[in-house]
Computed example of a mutant assay.
Amino acid sequence: MLTILDRYILKRYLVTFLGMLMLFVPIGIMANLAEKIGKIIDNEAPLSEVIVFYSNFTLVIGNLLLPIFLFLSIIFFTSKLASNTEIVAILSSGVSYTRFLRPYFIGATLVAILIFMMGMFIVPHASIGYNEFEYKYFKKGRQDRVTSNIFNQLNEDDYIYVSSFDPNRKIGYNFTYEHFDSIKQLDYKISASNIRWIDKDSIYRLTNYAKRKLRNGTEIIQTKRRLDTLFTFKIEDLTPVSYVAETKNLFELNEFIEDQKRKGASNINAYILVKYKRWALPIAAFVLTIIAVAVSSVKRRGGMGLNLAFGIGVAFIYIFFDKVFGTLAEQSGFSPLLAVLVPNLIFGAFAIYMLLKAKR
């Protein structure tokens, strides 16, 4: 059961957190709009699409920054409690420091649940519209896919390969399709100088088509200058968009990663990193809560300004570590799990140190 102390601190906790969101989210939208307004006008983006984009922008960016907003809001209102000597009065009344932390952990749990639900189920849907608008109007002409040396395993028996892929024209070059029989011997191999998806007919068009079969030790070759045909795979199977993992909910993402592992996707680490980051964000809410309380619960000569300056510095360092290790996981063989764990372990150890120091 919540006591008067719990309700008092928890109310300040949640009100300040919501106030921080109401303050900084519009600022973020205005800053982004000021930066991108030129491209919006030049590319003649419809007003309705712009409104939908910034609705999605609020969810996508807001979810990533929720732990940081939480961190700064705790520093803000706890510093006020300390400056008003309320914390001294609470601890002097016989309340232990651990007991004093209880409403903070209740608040962190509520925010962590919010972050989890948004990150796993709400934000993925918003990411679809957010990224499509980005590439349509802000990153016009840039590639949103891996476009070279693409190898995919469609199932246990079928493999495809293209040396390069043009997503705008939906055409792959130096196409190869290999089918293996039940004893894992090559049954036939299809090759073409290019493979193109024809939307209006819903077919694939192969240029310089050649099919090689092995029958009783004899090689049978079929060739055609051009062949229109069907395959069981979709053109998107050649190479999914780079942000595809961000657009899938918890269950879809797990299935997608398993599918990409089976296909031998070269950029699988980027997808796994997205999955682990979604689990790490709720944990970060607890780590940053401990640091914020430990920093701001002690009355200092510099007051709230010093605490906020320290908090902003810690927030930037946390984001820096997260970006560095995330880049290592995406572009090298560094483990995505370690890329997510290391920043949280470092700041977790720092949180415990600051907490013990504050107790003394």
Rank of each mutant, 00 (worst) to 15 (best):
N152F: 14
Q185A: 07
W197M: 05
V244K: 14
G264H: 09
D187P: 01
K136S: 15
E255Q: 12
I198K: 14
A245Q: 11
I150N: 08
D259E: 13
S193C: 02
D237P: 06
Y137K: 01
F165P: 01
N174Y: 10
G172H: 06
Y137W: 07
Q260V: 00
H179P: 03
I220M: 10
Y243D: 01
K211R: 15
Q153D: 07
I203Q: 14
E255I: 00
P240F: 07
Y209S: 01
E156N: 12
F138Q: 04
Y188D: 05
I203H: 11
I190N: 10
T229R: 07
N208G: 04
F165A: 03
A210T: 13
D187S: 14
L227C: 04
T147H: 01
K248H: 08
W197A: 06
S191L: 01
T229Q: 13
D157I: 03
V241M: 09
I257D: 13
D166A: 02
I183H: 09
S193F: 05
A210E: 15
T223L: 04
D158T: 15
W197N: 04
F138A: 01
Y177L: 05
R225Y: 06
F180E: 04
N249Q: 05
S242G: 06
I221D: 02
K184Y: 14
E156K: 13
K136F: 03
K263S: 15
N249T: 05
A192H: 09
R205F: 04
Y173W: 03
S182V: 09
K224R: 12
